[in-house]
Design a protein around this nucleic acid. Sequence first.
DNA 1: GCGTGGCGGGAAAGCGCTTTCCAGCGCTGC
DNA 2: GCAGCGCTGGAAAGCGCTTTCCCGCCACGC
Lengths: 338, 338
Amino acid sequence: MSARQVTLAEVAKQAGVSLATASRVLNGSTRQVSEELSDRVLRTAEQLGYVPNASAQALARNSSSLVGLVVHDITDPYFSCIAAGVTRVAEEAGLVVVLGTTGRRPEREVELLSTLRAHRARAVVLAGSRTTDRVAQSRLAAEIDAFTEQGGRVACVSQAKLGTDTVVPGNRAGGRALARSLAELGHKKFAVLGGPSELVVARDRLAGFKAGLADAGVAPPVVINGAFTRDGGYEAALQLLSSKSRVTCVFAVTDVMAMGAMAALRERGVRVPEDMSIAGFDDIPTLRDTVPALSTVRLPLEQMGEIAAGLVLDAGGDEARTVRVAGEVVLRASTAHN
Amino acid sequence: MSARQVTLAEVAKQAGVSLATASRVLNGSTRQVSEELSDRVLRTAEQLGYVPNASAQALARNSSSLVGLVVHDITDPYFSCIAAGVTRVAEEAGLVVVLGTTGRRPEREVELLSTLRAHRARAVVLAGSRTTDRVAQSRLAAEIDAFTEQGGRVACVSQAKLGTDTVVPGNRAGGRALARSLAELGHKKFAVLGGPSELVVARDRLAGFKAGLADAGVAPPVVINGAFTRDGGYEAALQLLSSKSRVTCVFAVTDVMAMGAMAALRERGVRVPEDMSIAGFDDIPTLRDTVPALSTVRLPLEQMGEIAAGLVLDAGGDEARTVRVAGEVVLRASTAHN
DNA sequence: GCGTGGCGGGAAAGCGCTTTCCAGCGCTGC
DNA sequence: GCAGCGCTGGAAAGCGCTTTCCCGCCACGC
């Protein structure tokens, strides 16, 4: 084993041409090569099973074919959908996706970016949600600068005041619209299961929701913060149930949290939607199969990944571009009239 | 922008040492360097924000820090769980994961492997399910050979007669055990929603299930084949309902298919488990939140990813190793006595 | 005192490509 | 007839590292 790899030099020699010619044939050089030589090179390359060494190419060209993708947790449907979108676009462009997971640790994000920089990734999509932690943010910003200085491009999914291209879901507007729809159903007493207070996404959705309630002349909601996960939603719901508040409708700031919350309600014998209405945010695909079907604000997750990848791949100007993606309220069986 | 990248040479010059010394300091060379020089190098590297060029390192060392991961569809929880396991192990080992998705097209698998070979990935985990398509299989085998020839390692998740390290879930045994458990509940008339007949995983689970029924002295099941997806399960279930067969229990060969089937049953007003019991296979995390909770055969998906990554990362002998992972029958609310 | 061996440091030869630069050649235009 | 041009092919200089090889130095043992 470990038969040494076929190199361009071997192909060239075998075909009786120079290294330069072989290189020109086997890669879309601007230079023309006569059909005869070209054929010969192609044939011998094929015959020898030649595969160019990507590292060498990257080194010589000073640019690689890697695209980074940084997510918190790939098992979370929110992220895996975005990942699907990003990989689709990247693969179509003949690029290769490097997947990094942070486990929700901001410092991991910085580490990953640095690794990606080491690999001279040509672009990175950051799909983690930004925090309000000043220190973490500034370190991240510094790393992003270093990355772009080197000629790499960065795009974020979800808002980030980081001066990068960004795909911004309508978190605030979505939350607001949802609140109004729910108020129209006659609910008067709301609870919100919010994520960790330092997450911008969570804050925006909450703020939007509050604004929507205010629009409808409804009292502000009870807010319970929990982890941004299924179990976080579960815990938060339990906490809500054990509190004295008599709410009739609860909004979990992500679908994943809402699923956890529904499990908690079910366990405690609280019927959805008869005793309690519940809604989430994102419209992850698994929602189709919950019972009752969960009301939510639909975000085109895969498409968001595609857009982010698109932004980051076509050069664009120096200007940071922002693409807004609207959320659409989808009322299903988990929310009823009150 | 595009301020040229800090190179080792610059660090060396700045620190007043040779290239060799700088290299030795900044990477775990076996050679010792005096503390004084070492300090100086480290300090200037830090100060200049030096990040080694991974491509150059890969080229010089003739080995990269890339690990490939090939899945059919990253949004499928089965694969995303495995992916989580693989990335965890890879990241701990300081490696970087390259994610490739095939969309269930066998030729894509070959392409991806070739790309990974171009990148001199040091290892690859193939998480797609093998098919019985001879041509596709032999092309894949050839590509795997080429990859290993080059010193890369390959591991497969799910059985593959490909001569690679393999993590083998107990598909047959799991199917068999499940069948027996279900027969014990008193069911006499079964249906199986099988995947495409050329998928080995699907076949094995089906075969095991049939064997289990035979063990219990129950008649063979009605078999309906559909796509290996949620919608495939949905369609297959509809087909089952419109057929004349009066079955009381249905086994979908994957949880994802089972979820689709449950949706179909729900739509048609067939109550689970009162009118029909249903069970799946895999125990994907989302199962926790279906109603009724789905009976299944539990596979430690994330762990399988970890094991595969482990196999592929620690050198091991030339021998192809096989790790068997047992499935455990988990009966939940979706299956009832008959 | 001098060969020996161990050790820290540097020069330089690659690793497998890309790309610049130059040589040769057949044209055109004066 | 020849300067000038466009075009194809090859030689060779990198790209940023790692690693071999060599050199000088010091501590030893005889």
